[in-house]
Measured scan of single mutants.
Amino acid sequence: SDFTIRIGDRTLHLKNVSEEILKILEELLRRGIDFEELRKIVEELIK
């Protein structure tokens, strides 16, 4: 499924993301992860 994360004025667009990855990202966001850290993790996950 497609997913968009907005943190402040920044946006991260994800396409064809599995439910498992979404759950991980949601947990990281709940813990207050930094946007740049989140972006790096996402890039690793979707390689």
Rank of each mutant, 00 (worst) to 15 (best):
S1F: 15
S1Y: 15
S1G: 14
S1V: 14
D2V: 01
D2H: 02
D2C: 14
F3S: 03
F3H: 09
T4E: 15
T4P: 02
T4S: 05
T4Q: 11
I5M: 01
R6T: 15
I7F: 07
I7D: 05
I7V: 09
I7T: 01
G8A: 02
G8D: 04
G8R: 01
D9R: 03
D9M: 03
R10G: 04
T11P: 01
H13F: 05
N16R: 02
N16S: 04
V17Y: 01
V17A: 07
V17R: 00
S18E: 05
S18K: 03
S18Y: 01
K23N: 12
K23A: 14
I24W: 05
L25E: 00
L25S: 03
L25R: 00
E26V: 07
E26N: 11
E27Y: 03
E27P: 06
E27D: 13
L28D: 05
L28V: 10
L28Q: 09
L28K: 07
L29D: 03
R30M: 10
R30K: 12
R30L: 12
R31C: 06
G32S: 06
G32Y: 02
D34Q: 13
D34I: 05
D34W: 01
D34E: 14
F35S: 06
F35P: 08
F35H: 04
F35W: 05
F35T: 06
E36K: 05
E36I: 04
E36C: 06
E36S: 05
E36H: 07
E37M: 05
E37D: 14
L38V: 08
L38F: 12
L38D: 01
L38H: 01
R39H: 12
R39L: 15
R39S: 14
R39P: 05
K40H: 14
I41M: 09
I41C: 02
V42N: 02
E43F: 09
E43S: 09
E44H: 10
E44N: 11
L45P: 03
L45M: 12
L45H: 10
L45E: 07
L45F: 06
I46P: 05
I46Q: 15
K47F: 12
K47P: 15
